[in-house]
Computed example of a mutant assay.
Amino acid sequence: MPIQAEGSPRKLADPFDFGGGHINPDKAADPGLVYDVDAGEYTKFFNCTLGPKDDGCESYTGKLYQLNLPSIAVPDLKDSVTVSRTVTNVGPADAAYRAEVEAPAGVDVSVEPSVIRFGGGGDRKATFRVTFTARQRVQGGYTFGSLTWLDGGNHSVRIPVAVRTVIQDFIADSS
């Protein structure tokens, strides 16, 4: 039987209900890549979206999907949205990771660059961009996918992706 989500009304569980994966303690000790989240990003997000606007908010998009989280959720995809993430290599100094995408239904996903490389004496951080483009113009619910960085060896760094396509913004939306 498929997993059912708790609540009323009952529904089939989706990644919002059961999470992004299982914990593997051996692999957690050697993750390869990590998504560092700076506390300053959260402070700026909350100050620019919830509090009085200061001088630093003009250039800030105020979108939660721009925070450097180890997941991507785009709740308002009309045409195309690009998000950035930065990973830090905590594995071998010389490493290359290739992006593998499982696109959400009805959405095209591209990753630039599709391969990130780390050199022995170089920077241990790399920034990449993920562009989501709606293939279907529907007011829909969330669809799910993933982005995985593979080094061809021991490391597989997967983050979940959730995208909700919209045609227009509604003041009250139950989705």
Rank of each mutant, 00 (worst) to 15 (best):
K44I: 03
F45D: 01
N47Q: 15
N47T: 14
C48M: 06
C48K: 00
T49G: 12
T49K: 14
T49A: 12
T49E: 11
L50T: 00
L50E: 08
L50D: 04
G51Q: 07
K53A: 09
D54W: 10
D54T: 15
D55F: 15
G56D: 14
G56Y: 11
G56P: 06
C57Q: 04
S59W: 01
S59R: 12
S59V: 10
K63D: 07
K63G: 02
K63Q: 15
L64D: 10
L64E: 12
L64V: 14
Y65E: 03
L67R: 03
P70L: 01
S71A: 15
I72C: 02
A73N: 10
A73R: 12
A73P: 03
A73V: 15
P75I: 03
L77P: 08
L77A: 03
K78R: 13
D79F: 02
S80Q: 15
V81M: 05
T82Y: 02
T82E: 01
V83L: 05
V83K: 00
S84W: 06
R85H: 11
R85T: 06
R85D: 05
R85P: 05
T86Q: 09
T86C: 01
T86G: 02
T86I: 06
T86F: 05
V87S: 07
T88R: 14
N89A: 11
N89D: 10
N89K: 06
N89M: 09
V90A: 05
G91E: 10
Y97A: 06
Y97F: 14
Y97M: 06
R98T: 11
